[in-house]
Design a protein around this nucleic acid. Structure first.
Lengths: 203, 203
DNA sequence: CGACACATGTAACACGTTACATGATTTG
DNA sequence: CAAATCATGTAACGTGTTACATGTGTCG
């Protein structure tokens, strides 16, 4: 639901047309989350279907504008007021992967962790470089407007904060695993997590 | 693709049936990401469609087992070897929301940030409490096996690390916003981010 | 007996995403 | 002229998710 609401928010500034929305969206989120143009149109269609936007005439150049409706504005207010649920957050693939790697025998957890760590550190460096460039470019050129520069900076910071936390967590996993290996739990029987049933028979 | 691979990983330990997979999945990820049972069956169907698992007979009690195929094992190896892409990470709703809140006029960014902060701190406390309970319960009762306890702990830690980073980022946003308000950029013209076109005409 | 956990499934939908088709306009 | 950008759209797919239907066994 992020793209839906993102586009809706952009439309709240005034009527826009599809291609323009993509441009403005990417100005704020940077190259991190490139937005396929086609998706703008599909999303606009669904927004219209749900009565959150309406077609709003066209340019002398043929640009097809959309405007947000009252219902759309209400939805938007609600979006801004309601926090993103961090209880029951979206499933994180890395967490699931590690949980499985730790559990399933025959997986080299250390290798998995280190491969991910290398990748994440690399990503972190990229972000830091991007940030330096953004900070250097802003006072001088500033072709884009200041508010979207700010947005882009905040998004970058979020990525950095999050990736740093990820790396720290990966290290944390390693130490926890080391501790665990020193004091292993008694080998459980097969299917110990599931209620022990009668031996299964092959068909 | 997380559930797909998660189930595949569980099946790699040996044939399982649907309901059992859900139980084992939740033993590892805890109550954080409750898994609708129906989804296990739909996912199993898709895994079978793609040749990653095959039906593997049934129990004397009628449990319908599935087993991972060689192709499935290959897919699984690949999953463990390949890091979760942290360049071009999944769109984060909170980041998008803040980027929009900062950009769109008439949004009380401070209110948005603080509402989210309260929510996240609350989530953090919940996680911490859960962790304390998990650590206390493990040495004594330990009804579940040690490895899935470990997995659950790691998942919890990840949630904690991530949420902490989120709170810190929110605070960081506030200070950045404060700095920005002190030294605001010159008011840009309308639609400054998009190429300035001729005045649009209403239809 | 009724409630509840166990167990298997299906139908339907939403959203995100990609690939493709098409055309106008601009620019090297 | 050719390539690139601007611009609008559609068809199709995949995963995740929910709601529902159905039946068995168990326990108070």
């Amino acid at each position: 639901m992020s793209i839906r609401h993102g586009l809706l928010a952009l439309l709240d500034q005034g009527p826009r047309y599809g291609y323009q929305l993509r441009t403005e969206f990417e100005a704020r989120t940077g190259a991190t989350w490139p937005l396929n143009v086609g998706q703008v149109y599909t999303t606009l269609g669904r927004l219209e279907r749900d009565g959150l936007v309406v077609p709003d005439g066209e340019d002398e150049e043929g640009h097809l504008f959309y405007a947000v409706t009252e219902k759309g504005r209400a939805e938007l207010r609600d979006w801004f007021e309601t926090p993103v649920p961090r209880t029951s957050p979206p499933r994180d693939e890395l967490a699931i992967k590690l949980a499985m790697a730790v559990t399933v025998p025959g997986v080299d957890v250390h290798a998995v962790v280190q491969a991910q760590r290398r990748h994440s550190v690399k990503a972190l460096q990229d972000y830091t470089r991007l940030k330096a460039r953004a900070l250097a470019g802003e006072p001088a050129g500033s072709a884009a407007d200041g508010r979207s520069d700010l947005a882009w900076l905040l998004v970058l910071d979020q990525l950095i904060f999050q990736t740093e936390a990820e790396v720290r967590w990966l290290d944390h996993c390693e130490t926890r695993l080391a501790n665990y290996r020193e004091r292993p739990v008694a080998e459980p029987g097969p299917a110990a997590t599931a209620p022990a049933r009668g031996r299964r028979t092959r068909a």
